[in-house]
């Protein structure tokens, strides 16, 4: 039967069978490796989490039951004392409120602006890819550079923002944006939105690109105008992705320390004193590590609460 060469070539593999059997011994060790590879590969990360997250978290909770400061570095057990102090302290409730406003305002504006920009960048026009690239700049720009340039822009004496507003007659004289309680909060919010809205743009744009085109064509045939198409097709299609983005961004903005701290340090008059800054103030400003830890623990439980909403949402999605 083997008249052609390929046939012969395929057939010479009799010795292959022998090699297979020799392989069986070799694989005993590597079979074990194969069987437990999942655990083995997860081990380094588990170790990382254990040492750098779980232990510190437990230690943080532990510390929150102590009064611990420079004069008493070993700490004195105070039980729930720090929490009692916390929940009876108006500064804590004030910061909780500020944090909530800060997260709500920045996320709300990021979502609205991000979605609008994504819709714009989904249209086709000359130079679109350039604009798409540039829009990402605020997101990739180092936080400290962002802070510094906005400090310059907001500057009361020679800041460009004041110059333009005075020239156009919108305000009569320069405003010290970051050092007045009423303007400081919104000035900081503005930077938070500027820095992070590109994230929403990228996610929403990616989602827009996979909405089937024939949905729009069908709606058009059914007589829907551009506004009806937005509300009846685009928005429902974006709903889930917007919910997820809003939830996750809320967590990050709630926990964000750098933007506010570096622009205002929590001031003026605690107008921008968010919870992370309060932790910092207690722990490294007045060296009350126990109280700082107690605030951090409360933040942790807020995080757990929001994350369980997220996981519940994911579970509903998967069903």
């Amino acid at each position: 039967m083997a008249s052609d060469t390929p046939q012969g070539a395929v057939r010479t593999f009799e010795d292959g069978a022998v090699r297979e059997r020799a392989g069986a011994a070799r694989t005993l060790a590597s079979t074990l490796l194969d069987r437990h590879l999942g655990i083995i590969l997860l081990l380094p990360s588990a170790l990382t989490f254990l040492v750098l997250l779980v232990f510190p978290l437990a230690y943080g909770i532990y510390t929150s039951f102590f009064e611990r400061h420079v004069l008493d570095p070993e700490g004195t057990w105070v039980g729930l004392g720090n929490y009692v102090w916390l929940f009876t302290n108006p500064n804590f409730w004030h910061s909780l409120l500020i944090s909530t406003f800060w997260a709500g305002a920045t996320v709300g504006l990021q979502i609205v602006l991000g979605t609008a920009v994504a819709l714009l960048l989904h249209q086709s026009f000359q130079g679109r890819s350039l604009v798409r690239g540039l829009v990402l700049f605020p997101y990739m720009m180092p936080v400290v550079s962002v802070i510094l340039v906005w400090m310059l822009l907001y500057n009361a004496l020679y800041g460009v923002i004041n110059y333009v507003l005075v020239q156009t007659g919108i305000v009569s004289r320069p405003i010290a944006w970051l050092s007045q309680p009423d303007s400081a909060f919104w000035s900081v919010v503005f930077v938070g939105v500027w820095k992070y809205f590109p994230f929403v743009v990228v996610i929403v744009l990616a989602r827009l690109q996979v909405i089937p085109q024939d949905l729009y064509e069908a709606a058009r045939i059914d007589g829907a105008g551009p506004i009806a198409r937005f509300f009846d097709i685009t928005l429902p299609q974006l709903r889930d992705v917007l919910l997820v983005v809003a939830l996750l961004r809320t967590i990050f903005m709630f926990n964000n320390f750098e933007i506010v701290f570096l622009l205002t340090g929590g001031g003026p008059l605690r107008a921008t004193m968010t919870l992370p800054i309060l932790v910092y103030e207690q722990a490294f400003g007045v060296y009350e590590l126990g109280r700082g830890s107690a605030i951090a623990v409360v933040m942790f439980f807020i995080l757990i609460a929001v994350m369980s909403v997220y996981f519940a949402f994911l579970r509903k999605e998967n069903d």
Partner: peptide, 29 residues
Amino acid sequence: VRGKEAYGRMVLLAYMFPGALLIIPLLLL
């Protein structure tokens, strides 16, 4: 891997951990 779904969820939670929460114990550690 048994329990990897739960582990995955823990990973996301870990990712969300605020620095302010970790900095005190990390410094002490």
